[in-house]
Design a protein around this nucleic acid. Structure first.
Lengths: 355, 355
DNA sequence: CTGTTAGCGCATTCAG
DNA sequence: CTGAATGCGCTAACAG
């Protein structure tokens, strides 16, 4: 189906001039006669001339394109990050190609190769839950192509990244549950391949400890975030001889599943079971009862990641230092943890991971 | 920041052979000595060689990449379509670059130019609600680059497209409302720039007419799908001297807004106001009451669009005929229109637009 | 089996 | 101000 695309040579021939002049006119070079320039521009429009970015990129060794790779984009989180990235990159004249690893390590590796082959100038990435080996990203580093991680970051690569304060968010969530009277607080965690999953787990543990509550291993389940299985774990927790009176879930979709299970079992939320999620999905404010959730600045996550990348793209090879940005979270309290007449006690100041 | 990437010439030099042989070994050409091939492959791995797709595309005049452009991707609809497209294109060895026009005509035009410049082999697109002029897509046609529309299609371009049966979906939705006893059914429609918006409006009108109900212009509002304003229109309808007893909304987000307004005003759904949406967003089954909605096969929409594009990409220039695929919709009945004890009457057979 | 050559479309020297 | 020449990295004839 491939057809001939008009080139500067076509325009040059049509006008009886050299392709150099056409090139100059098209790129806005000053040294072109005004009349000639106008004739060239007119002709270009007339024949639907469209510059061949492939040729230019090959020549200049820059594509003006960066990649962003995310593990999924059905929930609102990653799409919103992507929009933030695009806004910011567009402002600096970069295009963004979006890749979707679908939580598959294999796909992630394949995508990384494709991005490398298409010579992106940089990469923004949140890795899959299967990813333990980061060689496919280290290649970028070795080749001098900037990489920025966000949300799910790789610790043992010396690159920029932007995350939210997962530890603090989790701590505040659990603290809130304690302050509203819960004593057996379960945690449905993510896989320990994920940095943010580990940090949220630490926040959960430390909050319990600092408030003098035991950490019962029975109440902590790490799962693979496969939503289809969430209800199994929730049911398991509720079937325990000594069931939890609260659940802190790794993310909102998981918390929503829990809410559903509770509803089906006739368990009253928040009276018999309080539930807290993470990310403040728009759904959380629409359902009944509303889901209490740890909110994170999603769009800003993308913007900051983009800014880090741009800074690195525009830095001299040797004068660049990786930066790590941590954005704040905040707890949005809704009906899944408190009835409107409840009172909330003061918080501990500045929780930090125990040494 | 740009650094030198290893090329086949580097490998050739390192091994003291010609770049042609390297090229042959790397592309799997049979005429290469097995030992030489192995040495080349080893060296390639060792130096992180990654083919330069730019050079190959420039040479072959094929990028193996197609673009998909969508107007938004916060709601579940477009992401899910994109996933369907990617699956299908990957199966045929194509990459997909995702573009986001953000419902902005200007951005759409800019994206189209960028895709043209980067020489995509084909394009799958759902246009913005602002788009009235399709010149930026017609350029693709003129250059022999296949274009497939989906969801929001352009009627006056002779290209393939895939849609759902919006007319029928709307008809069945309104029929359902009539059969459950509603007589003043309002329609919060989309802008008339959108094909699907117009078709849903027709289905709404014809259902009323065929069931002998008047079409009251007062009850039909076309709006720009800007969710922030949805509540204004819903309130306007509910404030009418003779307010509606049912609302058929253009899409689920709009219907959810309506549900919210009703809740705030203390209007009972479904008793005083029945509400139906379109697309069956996952949220619709989570909220209380559940939202009755016209479901469409979203993933399949993407797959079919991809298949149409692939068929065209692989067809001979002249033997290709545009195809138009219409996928079925089905009504998912939930609590926003019926209490569980309600009975539903039989439907009219095969509704079709009135001539 | 392997090396040489040409050229994809373009920006950019270097000469006029 | 303009044209001719060069080369980005690669594949595909074309000769050995």
């Amino acid at each position: 189906m491939a057809t001939h695309q008009t080139t500067i040579i076509d325009i040059a021939h049509a006008l009886g001039i050299s392709k150099s002049t056409v090139s100059r006119a098209l790129t806005g070079h000053p040294n072109v006669n005004e009349k000639t320039r106008q004739r060239i521009l007119d002709m270009a429009t007339q024949v639907d001339y469209q510059r061949n970015q492939l040729a230019i990129s090959l020549l200049t060794n820059r594509t003006g394109t960066v990649g962003i790779m995310v593990p999924e984009f059905i929930s609102f989180f990653f799409p919103k990050v992507i929009i933030g990235v695009q806004e910011e990159m567009a402002r600096s004249g970069y295009n963004v190609v979006i890749c979707h690893s679908n939580e598959s390590y294999e796909t992630e590796v394949a995508n990384a190769k494709a991005l490398l082959a298409s010579r992106v100038d940089g990469l923004i990435v949140s890795h899959t839950k299967e990813t333990r080996n980061f060689d496919h990203f280290k290649v970028f580093q070795r080749k001098g192509i900037p990489v920025v991680f966000f949300n799910r970051v790789c610790e043992d690569m010396n690159v920029s990244n932007v995350t939210v304060d997962d530890y603090n968010g989790a701590f505040r969530a659990v603290e809130h549950l304690i302050q509203t009277g819960r004593r057996r607080i379960a945690h449905l965690a993510g896989p320990d391949t994920l940095m943010n999953s580990r940090n949220r787990l630490s926040g959960y543990r430390d909050a319990l400890t600092q408030y003098g509550l035991p950490v019962d291993p029975e109440l902590v389940i790490a799962y693979d975030l496969n939503l289809d299985k969430a209800n199994i774990y929730v049911n398991h927790l509720l079937n325990l001889p000594n069931p939890p009176d609260a659940l802190f879930a790794m993310n909102d979709p998981t918390a929503l599943e829990a809410l559903n299970v509770a509803k089906h079992r006739g368990i009253s939320v928040p009276d018999d079971l309080a539930i807290v999620g993470f990310s403040d999905d728009p759904i959380s404010s629409l359902i009944e009862p509303g889901l209490t959730s740890v909110s994170q600045p999603v769009g800003e996550l993308g913007q900051q990641a983009a800014q880090l990348l741009i800074r690195q793209l525009e830095a001299k090879e040797d004068e660049f230092q990786p930066e790590r940005i941590v954005l704040p979270t905040s707890l949005i309290v809704r009906g899944s943890t408190v009835r409107s007449d409840a009172t909330i006690l003061p918080q501990l100041p500045h929780p930090r991971p125990l040494p």
